[in-house]
Design a protein around this nucleic acid. Structure first.
Lengths: 396, 396
DNA sequence: CACCCTTTGTCCTGTGAGTGGAAAAAGTAG
DNA sequence: CTACTTTTTCCACTCACAGGACAAAGGGTG
């Protein structure tokens, strides 16, 4: 099948496409209930969408008491690619136009190898998904990278953990290689969009999405839209000072949140504790694995190891203090915690909640849920699909 | 003259009214250059606005090389009232429809006397402005109060420094008394709107406006619009922890920014220093006045008093650290410092800048101006006029 | 002053978007 | 089969708006 190239011709069509994306197949009548257009106008626009093959007829809907309606759905052959590039691994997934994941691959990887090597791997993963029959091609791709991005151009800017990526034209290069439109954003923003589309944040307009992985970042959603800041670095909370005169950080300052709690910091602290024989559990894991990671700490904590629990609590407290400040400032309707360390589970969440509920005023915290993300490792790729679909489902 | 009751009938008219407000009297041709409407359509809408008397003809414009155009301006009889209620004083001003201040009164006051007493005073101040011939009545009023507001209803919610105001229907009550539409907002948001309209932030879409007065607050502007948060308490940065285990704060926590630096904290610290004879300058001022305020500290600092300078630097450092965190998080295009303590001037600003430029990453600070507000005590009242004019100059 | 060019304001008509009513088509309930 | 719903199509009508033609009003030049 040839790829879709059509785009909605006006705001009405864009609106309809998004309704079909978010609500699944619907009848014309159901659509009419949601858009405030006359029946005639609606019929015209739907017919035009059918002509472009962006949507297709899909059998009869159930009766609502009278004549049965013809269902409409987004073209089931549409395929989006979601790519979530982390510091040490990459996720690639294919979705249909309703952003349901049809196939998902995760592979270890090192961003420091540079954009050329990484995209070679990404392309081969995409090819693998194609080969398994999930897609014949892609209609669009959304890419997340672990650093700030000049959003309109899709170019990383001064990313601290991605030397060699600065200024690399990710959007243009991938668009060439994949032969479809591409959008690039910070991985944290993608996670926020994922949780907004299919996760815990479906009903909230203003929320924060804190991702704790190798580093720490925060997606900011204002009125349903991701806020990226003046230079694309909004949400970069890893280098907020959490501990006065604390540990030295790679950025040159001391006491950055990221230096005290993150996947990397946790691994380092756990290794230290194991070497000092503070924890038999961690020491034995270090011996058998050679190294320790956040996963080991999580396992040790689950086994009841006091040192591991302390590390998590301590980190959660630091993180919670910073989040408390952000909550006072931003007054969100929801705080989502996600990323690799969510495996630390309730211990971490409890520590964060304690600090936020204690450190912010009741008016801001009174009705503020602080929850773990629902989507785990799929949040990023769903967010990627969402990003590109938002782009494609807007007037040309 | 009877008050204006008309409102723009559509988005085009609203757009034109705002252009006339922000750009002053213009010719039809100049308006046409800015709005992308056909000449015919523009003429129709302008004629309708003339019919409603929202705008009036205003002589001939200078020639641009051909036939001279007729000037159009907002009705010069329109009057807006801007009210900025602080903790210890209140500002009331009348503006014309272009938001130019025609008259401005400041009086000492105590918010703790409650809404009834305060509004009695405000109404008498408004009456005084009327009596001086500046206005025959008001077409709208924008009110700023020093605490969080449920914006759509214009009702303060749980304001810490305004006991007795919680739940008081400010908007409705004042609308009755003044006989015109009223909008109510946090005083900090009003200051931000003022600086955006007529001050340093005219060209910036995303910025922060930090107001340091009796307390500390921060106006947040996203894409040109004030962001108020889920419960209207966004920007409440006074109770972010600035010093671990620091001074006890009225809110029950320790180390809040507001407990370490604000008009109130500064007065307290200065008094303490004077009593301990750390500063002859401050001590002599304490003796002659009976009390010390931020103004005394400013004067002492200007006279070169080391203790006063230290107090300011110390406070500026604390504030700067908190702002550094907000800059990392929000990545604004500008930070404006305003409020009562701007009298502390360059010493304060230098301390804040040092902390922000050191404590945030270069990508966020690289092109980030940190400046004092331009409008001083008029920012709030101009913001109030702007608030209500935005409301009135939008489609009914 | 005559002449030409530019800008501004007005008038008028064509076009296309959109509305809402009528009626046909396709059901359900009894 | 009949009465009532809901869905869909068709059509005439309204309205916003663009854009051209033209008149009015100015400036510059010889």
């Amino acid at each position: 099948m040839r790829r879709m190239t059509a785009r909605p011709a006006n705001a009405h069509q864009a609106r309809l496409l998004r309704l079909l994306r978010d609500g699944g197949p619907s009848s014309r009548a159901q659509l009419g209930d949601q858009v405030d257009l006359s029946r005639s106008k609606l019929a015209v626009e739907v017919d035009r969408l059918l002509e472009t093959e962006l949507v297709v007829a899909d059998g009869l809907a159930a009766s609502r008491g009278g004549r049965r309606s013809h269902n409409i759905r987004l073209n089931p052959h549409l395929r989006f690619l979601g790519v979530d590039i982390g510091a040490t691994s990459v996720d690639v997934a294919v979705t249909n136009a309703e952003l349901e994941i049809l196939g998902h691959i995760n592979q270890p990887m090192d961003v420091r190898e540079g954009p050329v090597a990484v995209f070679e791997q990404v392309l081969s993963m995409a090819a693998k998904l194609k080969a398994s029959g999930l897609a014949e091609g892609f209609d669009g791709a959304g890419i997340g990278v672990p650093g700030p991005v000049r959003f309109p151009e899709g170019i990383p800017v001064a990313p601290p953990i991605m030397p060699g990526w600065d200024g690399f034209p990710v959007r243009e290069a991938l668009s060439q290689d994949l032969g479809c439109p591409v959008m690039v954003d910070n991985d944290v923003n993608l996670m926020a969009m994922g949780e907004q589309h299919a996760g815990v944040a479906r009903t909230v307009g203003d929320f924060l999405c804190v991702k704790i992985g190798t580093g720490i970042g925060c997606g900011i959603v204002v009125g349903g839209e991701v806020y990226r800041g003046t230079t694309g670095s909004a949400g970069d909370i890893g280098h907020i000072q959490a501990v006065p005169d604390g540990r030295p950080c790679a950025c040159g300052n001391r006491g950055c949140l990221e230096a005290h709690f993150s996947g990397a910091a946790l691994a380092r602290d756990a290794t230290e504790a194991a070497q000092q024989q503070l924890s038999a559990e961690l020491a034995s894991r270090l011996e058998s694995n050679g190294t320790l990671s956040a996963v080991d700490v999580a396992a040790a904590a689950a086994a009841g190891d006091a040192t591991a629990l302390d590390l998590i609590r301590e980190g959660g407290n630091r993180t919670g203090q910073v989040i408390a400040g952000l909550v006072s400032f931003f007054n969100p309707g929801l705080v989502v915690i996600g990323g690799g360390v969510t495996g630390l589970g309730h211990t971490l969440l409890a520590a964060i909640r304690t600090q936020v509920y204690r450190g912010s005023l009741p008016l801001a915290t009174g009705n503020l849920p602080i929850v773990l993300g629902e989507l785990g490792p799929t949040a990023g790729v769903i967010g990627g699909a969402r990003l590109i679909s938002d782009h494609l489902f807007s007037p040309a």
